[in-house]
């Protein structure tokens, strides 16, 4: 079953640049997919359209049964509750503790205190930060901050985890740590994972499905792909 379906999707920004030309793509439930491509390939735009930060100019996008292209502004939260999103710059709240940052995602959907507590501690355990619940983000290393962000993304048990350059700010060692956590979530919970990256090392090492974009077009979709120079 496909959890993501794109049909004839085109995205043109207001300044006239076209980021995506006529993209057709299906992603199966439970899969682990890398989206790679050079800068300007449209991979970030694709990601933004999946969580409805951007609307496609043309075409149809269905994510987890929701027609994203037609989703009204005030209903965007319905989509976001099905997704966990991780960014390169972590996007944590600096004035809140690790616990509060993760609990935030539970509170805004109206979970009870006990439920929040159980789920937050579980999520922090998965990312290996149970001993740092009372720290503030600026007291943590980059890798640890990204792990908090992952905990926040998975705390309400989303169907999909979207990661936009999750290791972009980290050294290779920490990057692998982060990817292992993401892989574990994919395996243990069956969460569909999409990772946008340009980190060759990781893509080659993990041997997952790789979708390659080039200048706004899909050029390659391999089940066990690698990051070839010719693709970029």
């Amino acid at each position: 079953m496909d959890i993501i379906r794109l049909k004839n999707v085109k995205k043109q920004y207001k300044n006239g640049t076209t980021a995506i030309y006529d993209l057709n793509l299906n992603i199966e439930k439970g899969s682990f997919v890398f989206i790679i491509g050079g800068s300007g390939s449209g991979k970030s735009t694709l990601m933004k359209m999946l969580y409805r930060e951007e609307k496609p100019t043309k075409g149809q996008i269905v994510v987890g049964g929701l027609n994203v292209a037609k989703l009204r502004n005030s209903k965007v939260y319905k989509l976001r509750r099905k997704l966990g999103i991780v960014f390169q710059d972590y996007r944590l709240l600096p004035k809140q503790t690790v616990y509060e940052n993760v609990a935030f995602a539970m509170e805004v959907i109206g979970a009870t205190k006990q439920e929040t507590r159980i789920r937050v501690l579980k999520a922090l355990e998965i990312v290996g930060l149970k001993n740092k619940v009372h720290s503030y983000p600026d007291q943590l290393s980059g890798g640890e901050q990204q792990r908090v962000a992952i905990a926040r993304a998975i705390v309400n048990n989303p169907k999909m985890l979207l990661c936009d350059e999750p290791t972009g700010n980290l050294d290779p060692e920490k990057s692998i740590e982060i990817m292992k956590i993401i892989e574990k979530i994919n395996k243990d919970w069956g969460t569909t994972v999409l990772v946008v990256t340009h980190d060759k090392e990781i893509v080659n090492r993990m041997k997952k499905q790789v979708i390659t974009l080039k200048e706004g077009r899909l050029v390659n979709n391999k089940v066990k792909g690698t990051y070839d120079n010719e693709n970029t």
């Binding site: 969580y51 005030s74 965007v76 939260y77 319905k78 976001r80 509750r81 997704l83 999103i85 996007r91 944590l92 709240l93 935030f104 995602a105 805004v108 959907i109 926040r152 309400n156």
Partner: peptide
């Protein structure tokens, strides 16, 4: 923007 990302309604 973070609230919106984690699925808070308006």
């Amino acid at each position: 923007s973070i609230m919106r990302l984690v699925g808070a309604s308006n």
